[in-house]
């Protein structure tokens, strides 16, 4: 009974997920043409192609990597939503991991799929509401948010996020965490040019940690 329900839920999730992904894509790519015709000048496709070759290819590769790495973390519903709403590394992934930690669900289970979907949907709605409120109140808010005093706080959202999440994850897996943390620190100290490529460096760091986790897992499970 439960299995049949979940199977049906999963099937519908994929159906809705695919439909809304396609529709959002059409809307997003169509919008510049609609705006262009309103402004009186359609996009210059030659410049788009040149621009894509110069910056787009890097983002294409990083999108493929993001899809491969984060889809298993997010599950079906969470995956479709996260790739529609964006801001994965700085918000959606840590948010889903936090919800999973609080709910105590394990990856690959239906419970985790549900928690992850709830988390990504709630997170996306929060961003949409805050951005909409911010845009509505842009004039009175602008001087406050852009004040020199608050700048350092907003420049450090990501370190604050990873400090808190780091504690949560490192304390339970201290042996596992030491190796990537030390390795990555040494790597960035010796090759400071890589600091601007941190989002790509997640891949070797993650691969190293997964390999270590596998060794530990094999040892514990014979």
């Amino acid at each position: 009974m439960k299995n049949a329900y979940l199977e049906n839920y999963d099937k519908t999730t994929h159906r809705i997920g695919r439909a809304v992904s396609a529709l959002t894509l059409i809307l997003l790519v169509g919008a510049p043409f609609v705006i262009g015709s309103y402004l009186g000048a359609l996009p210059d496709l030659g410049a788009v192609a040149r621009g894509f070759l110069s910056v787009g290819l890097i983002w294409t590769i990083s999108s493929v990597v993001e899809f491969l790495v984060y889809t298993p973390m997010l599950g079906a519903g969470g995956g479709y939503l996260a790739f529609i709403t964006g801001n994965l590394i700085n918000m959606k992934i840590p948010c889903a991991m936090n919800a999973r930690e609080i709910a105590g669900t394990k990856s690959g289970t239906p419970e985790n799929e549900i928690i992850s979907t709830l988390s990504i949907a709630a997170s996306s709605l929060t961003t949409i509401v805050i951005l909409a409120a911010g845009v509505l109140l842009l004039v009175p808010l602008q001087p406050i948010l852009q004040s020199q005093t608050l700048q350092p706080a907003f420049a450090n959202v990501v370190p604050a996020l990873f400090g808190a999440m780091g504690y949560q994850y490192f304390r339970k897996n201290i042996r596992l965490a030491c190796v990537p943390l030390i390795t990555m620190s040494i790597l960035f100290i010796l090759v400071p040019a890589l600091i601007s490529q941190t989002s790509i460096m997640i891949i070797p760091s993650g691969a190293l940690t997964i390999a270590l986790a596998y060794v530990i897992y094999r040892r514990q499970h014979g």
Partner: peptide, 24 residues
């Protein structure tokens, strides 16, 4: 192992960022 792999990936992600602050 899937569950451990996800935790490990996330630890790798956080380590890369904190490592970049130290390197910086």
């Amino acid at each position: 192992f899937g569950d451990s792999a996800m935790t490990a990936m996330f630890i790798g992600l956080v380590s890369a960022y904190i490592g970049s602050y130290i390197g910086s």
